[in-house]
């Protein structure tokens, strides 16, 4: 039960949505964009999210796009997570997404909601961080296209009146070797101890992480260390920790020490899988 009430709008175009937002905000309202709405519903129930108007963007055709256009994969922000496995155009995304929440919930949770939500794991962003994707963001001045890395720092840096419409990823990335692993202490559903996704491009390994810090990130400094081929895997993993952002999560899912222990193992496993056994 959500105790407060709000207005509900379901615009059919991007412009309608952003106009609505401006109108509502200019009247002193607190509108919020809504796609899957799972976070707004569950946190709203606990008064951790408040809004007086939701603008449901899932009837905007662009947010439902899922397919290739001009050698790019376009991922609409209101696509439910479940679709990435049903139509698996982007295996890394499919694999990462299928570990979020549970199956039934993934039919409702959207990729945009996962990326832009408050719950800080936001694992849905990892595949896009690794693939030099662009984001299409709608705002009062229309839709702008930006490289993800320019507008992502711990979270997607959106102005209040903006919303994520699509992500665009070059098709060539779909073919690249990748790994994505979500580690939890002793269960198979739900929040991670940590998630590591990795992609090999031109012989260079890229890494992105969730659950290590209270935000997802990709670190080029860590990647440099992790790709220093002369060093043993474990040494590389430990050396890369010098560049870990802070703080390391220390919560009920696991202590910071244990997380680093598991992270080290996970990275070593990834290196083994990508580069082969060290003893050989």
């Amino acid at each position: 039960m959500i105790s407060f009430d709000f207005e509900y709008y379901r615009p059919k175009s991007i412009k309608e949505a952003t106009d609505l937002y401006q109108n509502l905000a200019s009247r002193g309202g607190k509108p919020i964009y809504y796609s899957g709405g799972t976070e707004i519903i569950t946190l709203g129930r606990l008064n951790r999210v408040y809004t007086d108007a939701v603008i449901d963007i899932k009837s905007i055709p662009e947010t439902q796009t899922w397919g290739f256009h001009n050698n790019e994969l376009i991922t609409g922000s209101a696509l439910p997570l479940s679709i990435f496995n049903e139509k698996n155009y982007f295996p890394l995304l499919a694999e990462t997404a299928r570990e979020i929440a549970d199956y039934t919930s993934r039919i409702k949770i959207t990729i945009g909601g996962n990326i832009c939500g408050q719950i800080f794991y936001r694992e849905g962003i990892l595949p896009f961080l690794l693939t030099d994707s662009d984001v299409l963001i709608a705002g009062s001045k229309g839709v702008k296209r930006k490289p993800l890395k320019e507008v992502f720092d711990q979270k997607l840096m959106l102005e209040r009146e903006e919303f994520l419409v699509q992500l665009a990823t070059k098709k060539i990335y779909m073919e690249m070797p990748f790994l994505s692993v979500k580690k939890r202490q002793q269960w198979k559903t739900g929040y991670p101890l940590l998630t590591v996704a990795s992609l090999k491009k031109d012989g260079f390994l890229r890494f992105a992480f969730s659950g290590v810090c209270p935000f997802p990130f990709r670190s080029e400094q860590m990647e440099t260390v992790l790709n220093s081929r002369t060093q043993p895997y474990e040494e590389r993993a430990l050396a890369s920790f010098d560049y870990l952002p802070q703080p390391i999560l220390n919560d009920i899912e696991g202590s910071n020490e244990y997380r680093l222990f598991v992270l080290k193992n996970t990275i070593v496993d990834f290196l083994k899988k990508f580069e082969g056994d060290e003893n050989k």
Binding site: W187, K188, D251, I252
Partner: peptide, 29 residues
């Protein structure tokens, strides 16, 4: 035995009063 417990902070608050963070067995486990 394997997974269920309340986590308390210094103020005696239970940190995991939801089935998302308090985890009974699910099918397949």
């Amino acid at each position: 035995g394997g997974r269920e417990t309340f986590y308390f902070d210094d103020l005696g608050r239970v940190m995991n009063p939801q089935l998302r963070t308090y985890r009974p067995l699910r099918y397949g486990e």
